[in-house]
Every structure is written in C-alpha cells, then in structure tokens.
C-alpha cells in the first residue's frame, strides 16, 4: 500500500451517537486514491452511518473527517463547527458521490433528466453537453436504450445502474455505495456488480458497504469489518476472510459463509 501518498479520505477518532445511542465509537481510517474498500459487518454495526457521515448526510459527534483538504469536525467540540461543516460538506460533495440501497432516482424525471439534472443545475453545463455526457454514461452502464423512460418503469437493477450513471455524471473522485444490491431481486444483482467491477478496474476510489462476500473478496483491495461501532478488522480480503484476528469476525464469517 502506498504509504507515502496522502490519503484521499482520512478519518480520525470519529464518533457518532444519536442521543444516548453510540453508533460509531471510535473510527480511524485512511483511504487512498484508487482503493476499493468493502465494509462488512453485522446489521446495526454502523456501516451505513459511517458511510453517511463521510458526505455529511449525518453529523459527527466528535473527531474529524478530512477529504480533499476539507474537514468535517465533531459538533460536540465547538459551536461554530456546524456552520463550518456545512461549508466543507458543500466542497466534499463535489468530489464524493453516493449510491443508495433504494436507488433514490427522482420518479418525476426521465432517466436522462435524472442524469443531467445536477451537471446542469450545479455545474451549469450546457444542456447539449450534459446530454452528450449523460448518454455516454448511460451507455457505459447499459441503459442508453431507456433514456426516455421514467424510473418506476424500470427494474431495480436498471434503476441502480441509472443511479450509478447519475453519480458518475458529477465526475466524483470517490463513490460511496450503501448496499447497492441488497434491494434487488437476485437475477439483477450481477448486472449492477458488473458495472461496479468496471469502475473498480478503471481506478475509481470506492467504499462499498455490502453483504456480497464474493464481491468483497474478488474486487476489493481492502476489507473492513465493523462491529459495535468500531472497525475491528482492516486488511486485504485474504487477511480478513482467511485469518480474522477477532472472534467476532470469525463468528460472523462462520455464520454467513456456511449457509
């Protein structure tokens, strides 16, 4: 691993609680450009919360997240952090895209309109340019034939591929995936994973919360196992799957791998 490089995402001492409930207790992690990191762990261990903190869909209680020179700080530490965080988040979101379990396409817009919306509205790109780029991206995810369809007319797998194209249209450096295939019928999982594999190959930095152990072990450079608000295993797929250090991880793998 390129230790000399500066990390693209650096999380230090991050904690997050909802009132009394401590969901993330202490997270320290550095993520480097081009890495594909799979985040796995039992339900309720804080995987989604961790991901959502990275692009400020959730505030963090303490610690800090540095992305591209922008810093999000714990709101319990100083009052003015909230305002500063919002400003930092605006910058961070330019470089960090997110793909959701439920796709979250906008149902009142066509596939094409979903993809060109943000380039036109935020980056002020001219419509014809935005459409050209969008069609290229839709082609890349195999959805150019459905450009004029509305999301409710598509299968889950198709919607998720469009959602990926929509994210790519903003040209992010990092994409966060929160269980991108969990809401899909099994027959559609493969097509979405294929698109993600393509991105990984092309060098995209990706953090993927997933229950697809196949994807985690084949595609990712690195696997993080979370439990109880900590990252308790962090290494190559080989290290984490074959030789987990913790009993919690061993138990988890014995449960899910033997079914």
């Amino acid at each position: 691993m390129a230790d000399t490089q500066t990390p693209i995402i650096s999380v230090k001492n991050m904690a997050k609680s909802y009132g009394e409930l401590a969901v993330l207790r202490k997270i320290d992690i550095d993520i480097y450009k081009g890495q594909v990191v799979s985040v796995i762990g039992p339900s309720g261990s804080g995987k989604s919360t961790f991901l959502r903190c990275l692009n400020y869909l959730e505030e963090i209680t303490s610690g800090e997240i540095c992305i591209d020179g922008q810093t999000i700080r714990g709101i319990s530490e100083a009052k003015e952090n909230k305002k500063l965080n919002e400003k930092a988040a605006r910058e961070i979101r330019k470089n960090v895209g997110m793909v959701f379990q439920q796709f979250n396409l906008w149902p009142h817009k066509t596939v094409l309109e979903n993809v060109i919306e943000c380039p036109m509205q935020i980056k002020k790109i001219k419509k014809e340019d935005a459409v050209r780029t969008a069609m290229e991206l839709l082609k890349k995810v195999g959805m150019d034939g459905k450009a004029d369809a509305y999301p409710p007319q598509l299968s889950g797998g198709q919607q998720q591929r469009v959602a990926i194209a929509r994210t790519l249209a903003m040209n992010p450096e990092v994409i966060l995936f929160d269980e991108p295939t969990s809401a899909l019928d099994p027959e559609f999982v493969g097509e979405v994973l294929d698109v993600m594999k393509g991105l990984a190959k092309a060098g995209m930095t990706m953090i993927v919360v997933t229950h697809e152990m196949g994807f985690a072990s084949e595609v990712s450079d690195r696997v993080c196992f979370m439990d109880g608000g900590y990252v308790i295993e962090d290494g190559t797929p080989e290290e984490v799957f074959k030789n987990p250090k913790s009993d919690r991880a061993k138990q988890f793998f014995s449960k899910i791998l033997n079914v």
Binding site: V96, G97, M98, F100, Q102, W106, C118, R166, M170
Partner: peptide, 21 residues
Amino acid sequence: PKGQYEAAAALGMPRLKILCR
C-alpha cells in the same frame, strides 16, 4: 421518501434547489 432529498444533497444540490426541483 427521505432518500429523494438525500440523493440530491449527496450530489451537491443546495437545499432550496432540492425543495424546488
């Protein structure tokens, strides 16, 4: 659904624009 707002926010859309569009 909250995800409608979040998807736009995650793409960097400002709040007022998300509400209007």
